[in-house]
């Protein structure tokens, strides 16, 4: 309870995420070039682009899974520096869902969910379990709580991963191609959960190729290629009147099949 009041009493800055003139290199390779991105509280953003365009790298920089070399990233009013304390604060308030789920296979579903609340938020186990069950209920798999991840389908695993992130009551959710590793049947069940989350006003950054999802929930769509943000627009204009040739080519390729 204590931690919750602390979070809500903290003045919430207008911008959830502010990335300014950010550059990143892998050795000699310049992966991200002059990224500028502002995300308001409650905004839903979809990032798309061809593979290797740096879209995953951008969102992985936001919770410091990747380090940037130039420019600044401010998350919820806290700037990402080498200060471990800042990094841990930001990570505990930014949830992330991965392409390959990354559930912990040696723990049951509910143990996966309570781990971070217990160890990071210092929450009593009983309370953490209640919260976990609440979110498992919301992603519609409370009956799987005591199974191991290896016994679930891909779609179920990804929903557990979403519930696991939500248990930390994050203020921002990052999705890194959450449906790319799933069978078509399971994509829908995961997208439904994400759409519901968007309706509740969660700030979301989502790297995805699900254009239907982008049209339904995104406030803005960002197109990236070769480490740069090429185009940025509301979904209607983005899909109907793409300005840049590269965007048109990309859209024709993914929408035509």
């Amino acid at each position: 309870m204590n931690t919750e009041t602390q979070i809500s009493s903290k003045a919430s800055p207008e911008m959830a995420i502010e990335i300014t003139n950010m550059h990143k290199w892998y050795g000699q390779f310049h992966v991200l070039k002059n990224i500028n991105l502002k995300v308001a509280q409650g905004e839903r953003i979809v990032i798309c682009g061809p593979s290797g365009s740096g879209k995953s790298t951008v969102i992985r920089c936001i919770n410091r899974l990747e380090e940037h070399q130039e420019g600044s990233i401010v998350v919820d009013g806290v700037e990402l520096t080498n200060d471990l304390k800042n990094i841990e604060t930001i990570r505990s308030e930014v949830g992330m869902v991965f392409q390959h789920f990354n559930l912990f296979p040696h723990l049951t579903v509910v143990e996966n969910c309570v781990l971070a609340p217990i160890w990071v938020r210092k929450m009593p186990r009983k309370e953490a379990e209640e919260i976990a069950m609440k979110f498992l209920d919301r992603v519609k798999i409370p009956e799987q709580a005591h199974k191991f991840p290896g016994q679930l389908s891909g779609g179920q695993q990804q929903r557990v991963a979403i519930a696991r992130s939500l248990c930390m009551s994050p203020r921002i959710m990052l999705f890194d191609e959450p449906t790319s590793a799933l069978d078509p049947e399971m994509i829908k069940e995961v997208l439904e959960v994400m759409i519901e989350l968007a309706r509740e006003g969660m700030t979301m950054l989502c790297v995805t190729h699900e254009m239907g999802f982008a049209k339904t929930v995104a406030d803005r769509v960002i197109f990236m290629d070769e480490g740069e943000i090429i185009e940025e627009n509301n979904p209607a204009d983005f899909f109907d009147n793409p300005k840049h040739d590269r965007t048109k080519l990309f859209l024709s390729q993914i929408l035509d099949h």
């Binding site: 919770n63 410091r64 899974l65 841990e88 604060t89 990570r91 505990s92 930014v94 949830g95 992330m96 991965f98 390959h100 990354n102 559930l103 912990f104 296979p105 040696h106 781990l115 971070a116 160890w119 990071v120 696991r164 992130s165 930390m168």
Partner: peptide, 30 residues
């Protein structure tokens, strides 16, 4: 142990020793 395991632990704010003790070592030792 896939890199995703530590990434998931990091992304939830677990410290290095916590993620080793709770996530990585139980699997690696097994």
């Amino acid at each position: 142990i896939p890199k995703g395991q530590t990434e998931a632990a990091d992304s939830m704010g677990l410290k290095y020793w916590q993620s080793m003790r709770l996530i990585v070592l139980p699997q690696a030792l097994k």
